[in-house]
Structure formats: C-alpha cells, structure tokens
C-alpha cells in the first residue's frame, strides 16, 4: 500500500494506492492519526487506485472519523470508491458514517 498527500487550502487529500488488509492497515491508521494529530481534520481520501480493503481498513477509517469529527472540527470524506469496496463497506453498515463523493475534487470542494 502507498499513500500520497496533497495539501489544499481548506483540506488535505490523501490518495490510497494498492491494498489495505490486516498487514497494511496499521500503516494506513498511522498516516491518518498523524494527519489528525498535526491539526488536519478535514480529509479527503481518494480511493480510485485502491484495489482492496478488508475490515481492518474499515476500522482504521472509523477511528479516524471519530478523531476528525471531535468538537465538530472536521471530517473524513471518501472519493472514487471502487464498486467492490463500496459493496463490502455497505454490508458492514459503514456507508452512512461517511460522505462518499464520485471524484476527489468534488470532495475537496465540499469543504
């Protein structure tokens, strides 16, 4: 898994590349914790090049959403979620916990 980062005026865009499972989720969780820990509470995660995500990744997203939304200071939004990941996300009941946009710039514009 790889994560690239792009800073915008009102939010931060992270592009997730590859696969997030129990092996790589700790690295993903750490990147999100680091962002929130350094005062970046408005996050867009571009999933267009994410091939796979298991529940380990969902858990990291949940923890990040809790941290980002604290004191109403921000939120984690998702963009370009591949259908197969979206389907599992739906089954896990996570869809309602995140705003999901068709493309990353739309998500950036939301902030």
């Amino acid at each position: 898994m790889e994560i690239t980062h792009q800073e915008f005026k009102r939010c931060d865009l992270f592009k997730l590349i590859g696969r997030i499972d129990s092996a790589t989720a700790p690295q993903f969780a750490k990147a999100l914790e680091k962002a929130v820990g350094s005062g970046k509470y408005k996050l867009v995660l571009d999933m267009s090049e994410l091939e796979y995500m298991s529940s380990a990744g969902f858990r990291a997203l949940l923890a990040a959403q809790r941290a980002a939304k604290k004191y109403n200071r921000g939120e984690v939004t998702l963009a370009s979620m591949p259908d197969r990941i979206h389907e599992a996300f739906d089954l896990a009941g996570f869809t309602e916990l995140f705003k999901i946009f068709d493309d990353p710039l739309q998500a950036v514009g939301h902030f």
């Binding site: 858990r59 949940l62 939304k69 896990a92 916990l97």
Partner: peptide
Amino acid sequence: LAKRRIGGL
C-alpha cells in the same frame, strides 16, 4: 459513530 463497536466486523 461514537457508539459503533469495532470488533466482530
């Protein structure tokens, strides 16, 4: 969000 349990997923 606050009450969602993480285990068992």
